[in-house]
Design a protein around this nucleic acid. Sequence first.
DNA 1: CGGCATCCGCTTAGATACTG
DNA 2: CAGTATCTAAGCGGATGCCG
Lengths: 107, 107
Amino acid sequence: MVREILDLVGDKWTLYIIAALKEGPVRFNEMRRRIDGISQRMLTINLRGLERDGLVKRTLFPTIPPRVDYELTEMGGTLLAPVMALVTWANSNQENIRGARVRYDAS
Amino acid sequence: MVREILDLVGDKWTLYIIAALKEGPVRFNEMRRRIDGISQRMLTINLRGLERDGLVKRTLFPTIPPRVDYELTEMGGTLLAPVMALVTWANSNQENIRGARVRYDAS
DNA sequence: CGGCATCCGCTTAGATACTG
DNA sequence: CAGTATCTAAGCGGATGCCG
């Protein structure tokens, strides 16, 4: 079960979705734009999963055209810190990693 | 590039490998046993990738039979904290997530 | 023991088209 | 705008066999 959850939070897109929601509610297409490279299909599937797991809340405004807001739930908010720690780590270590790769590939 | 790194840490097995190395050097087959469900092939491939990225150090002892130790590099060690934060989060929230799923599936 | 090479099925995700 | 449906290829990963 813990395994299942780690597979979830360690999923390719989950990190980006959580990070994209850190400022507050975001509409569907706005998220697509924020998460470079994600397809409509993948965003939908992953958002459904996160909603099912109680990490993301979906709010439909039945206007025309329809509007849907996604935001972190309370539990989703508690995941933000660990996720952002990872993002920060990635930012600060990109140079080191690039260097390591160059050295490795050279040998 | 940051994207590439996040894909790395968000990889299915990376989190487990890093976590498995937190106590110190571990031999290949010992890791296999610690990481439930990973195949030899996947462990090898992922360890190579992490070695290339400078996160894991591989030490070969040319004895018979051969012995190979894997351990976190200094940079790999700095990734431990964020990763363990995620693991801890997964542990503390498994009940909430299970509950959320039951509620979602019921509706 | 700690791999690498090959084969292969099956999931996954991207592209595309369609809808309320 | 925010999806759903369908198709397809690409690759992920498991199984197996062999090797130093």
